[in-house]
């Protein structure tokens, strides 16, 4: 476990900013308790200072997880967000997409969101923008990237893809062994 280097921090926040924009400040500047980001086995964890200090007594090989895993760095130093980060992404999301009840299951099985399943979308969402996906009952289901802007979405074929799937809560079951 170690703090992120400046380069890693930059790459990590650049990715986060695609989903929550300026709200990344709220992750660092918290009124309740000091929180920090720590790297352990290429994974980035968001953890309270107190817990992190306790975890320093655990050896590197024995420490599996602490706090919330936001994602991991690839060997080529790219950052990949994991579904476990959804809790915070959903809280501070800039652009949102709501799927209709009939589109929930297809999305939770890892499919892209079709126009027919698109319930609502934040106004003025640009193309290729990171978005958080909710059910119509405002339950966060995952996140992805828009294939079309909001304006383009209006006049589309029902079978065209509107949001590309990136992660969904179905992974907790499907990829249980990989979720940390």
């Amino acid at each position: 476990m170690r703090p992120l280097t400046e380069e890693e921090t930059k790459i990590f926040f650049e990715k986060l900013a695609k989903y929550i924009g300026r709200n990344i400040v709220h992750l660092i500047d918290r009124p309740d308790e000091p929180y920090c980001f720590r790297l352990q086995r290429d994974r980035v964890f968001y953890v309270s200072e107190a817990i992190m200090k306790r975890a320093t007594s655990v050896g590197r090989d024995n420490l599996l997880t602490l706090g919330v895993c936001f994602g991991k760095f690839t060997k080529t130093l790219k950052f990949k967000l994991h579904i476990t980060a959804l809790e915070y992404l959903a809280q501070y999301a800039k652009y949102k997409v709501w799927v209709k009840p009939n589109g929930e299951m297809p999305f939770l099985y890892g499919n892209h969101i079709l126009k027919a399943h698109l319930g609502r979308i934040t106004e003025d969402t640009p193309e290729h923008q990171g978005v958080i996906i909710y059910s119509m009952a405002d339950v966060a289901l995952g996140f992805g990237v828009t294939a079309r802007s909001t304006q383009d979405c209006r006049k589309l074929d029902p079978t065209t893809i509107t949001v590309f799937h990136q992660a969904d809560v179905g992974e907790y079951l499907r990829d249980e062994e990989h979720v940390v």
């Binding site: 921090t9 926040f13 900013a17 990344i24 920090c36």
Partner: peptide, 11 residues
């Protein structure tokens, strides 16, 4: 403080 500096650059 260090992290905030990086955030400012990114934003």
């Amino acid at each position: 403080e260090g992290v905030m500096n990086v955030v400012k650059k990114v934003l």
